Simulated assay, not measured.
Amino acid sequence: MVKRVLISENARQVLEQLKSQHGELMFHQSGGCCDGSSPMCFPKGELMLNETDVYLGDIANCPFYMSKDQFEYWKHTQLTIDVTKGRGSSFSLEIPLGLRFVIKSRLFTEDELLQMGPVDTVKN
């Protein structure tokens, strides 16, 4: 099955460092302006989710969520979480390291789109 979200090796290494400091983690991409459209990493459970969020899958054993509105824009693409030098202005856990998570994307092929299952909305 084709995955909707992947993680680069560099981002995986940063994520493992963050896990050792903060425990279980989660990702969310809200789709707000500026840094709000970047993937943000939080301690698992710190960000309250609701029916306006969808679950895209796990990366490095961390759930990745996105707002429904943002998903409508990205639903035809496979997302890869990567990391780059530079400080974003969000509350994401990597920011104090002088790094920020970014998204790289590619369009799914028509065959891949046929294999895609529905996403799950968050249920409280």
Rank of each mutant, 00 (worst) to 15 (best):
E112Y: 09
T52C: 09
S92G: 13
D120R: 12
N124H: 15
V83D: 02
Y55D: 13
C41Y: 04
R106V: 11
A60I: 01
E72A: 13
M48C: 06
L6T: 05
F108R: 14
V83Y: 02
G86Y: 11
F71S: 12
A60S: 14
E51T: 12
S89M: 13
G86F: 00
N124R: 11
E24K: 08
K44R: 14
H22I: 10
R106Q: 14
N61C: 07
N61Q: 15
L107K: 12
M66I: 13
R100M: 12
S38L: 15
S30W: 09
V102K: 11
D82L: 15
K19W: 01
T77F: 04
E9C: 02
V14K: 02
M116Q: 15
I103E: 06
G45E: 05
I7L: 04
Q78G: 03
N50E: 08
F27H: 01
L113P: 02
E46Y: 13
S105M: 11
S30R: 06
I95L: 14
F71L: 07
P39N: 08
G86L: 11
L56S: 02
V122R: 06
R100T: 08
V54I: 05
V54D: 00
L97Q: 01
T77P: 00
R100K: 15
L114F: 00
C62D: 02
N124E: 07
I7E: 00
T84C: 15
G31Q: 11
S105T: 08
M26W: 08
W74I: 12
P96R: 07
M48S: 15
K104I: 11
P43F: 00
P96H: 10
G117S: 14
I59P: 00
G36L: 14
P39I: 04
T121P: 00
R4F: 15
Y73G: 00
V14R: 05
M116T: 09
L47N: 04
Q70W: 09
V54Q: 03
S38T: 10
T52L: 14
S8C: 01
D35M: 05
G23F: 08
S38C: 15
L113D: 03
V14Q: 02
A60C: 05
N50I: 01
Q70T: 14
F64V: 09
V83M: 04
